[in-house]
């Protein structure tokens, strides 16, 4: 069977029990296998935590990467700010 180049996996870890609440950590991993050589890239990141209580109700709390969100927002602002400036200069000529 041919080795897949991109593999995505979502897995939950062992629950952490606090009082009557169980907290299940969930992570997502992306693995890129190099097709012509041994090795590859593995990127793991936290996805969410599932909170289950004794009554049977479950709540999913996402784990947000604030640093990544801010980085993308700033770089997008820089790109669109530059584009807007270029358009304004172009129209003023």
């Amino acid at each position: 069977m041919a080795k897949r180049i991109l593999v995505q996996e979502t897995s939950a870890g062992e629950p952490v029990i606090v009082g009557e609440v169980s907290v299940y950590p969930v992570a997502r991993s992306y693995r890129i296998n190099f097709p012509a050589a041994r090795g590859g890239i593995v990127w793991n990141r936290p996805l969410a935590v599932i909170v289950a209580d004794s009554s049977g109700s479950r709540q999913i709390i996402p784990v947000q990467d604030r640093t990544r969100q801010l980085q993308i927002a700033l770089l997008a602002a820089g790109f669109f700010g530059t584009l807007l400036t270029w358009l304004i200069f172009r129209r003023s000529k």
Partner: peptide, 29 residues
């Protein structure tokens, strides 16, 4: 590529448990 690499060992402070979460990238060839 495991959940154990993302979430650390819970730290107990009284009745509270603190679980650290980290992103990691491994490149190898």
């Amino acid at each position: 590529a495991s959940v154990d690499r993302v979430y650390g060992t819970p730290i107990e402070v009284g009745e509270t448990k603190i679980i650290p979460a980290a992103e990691n990238l491994v490149v190898m060839g």
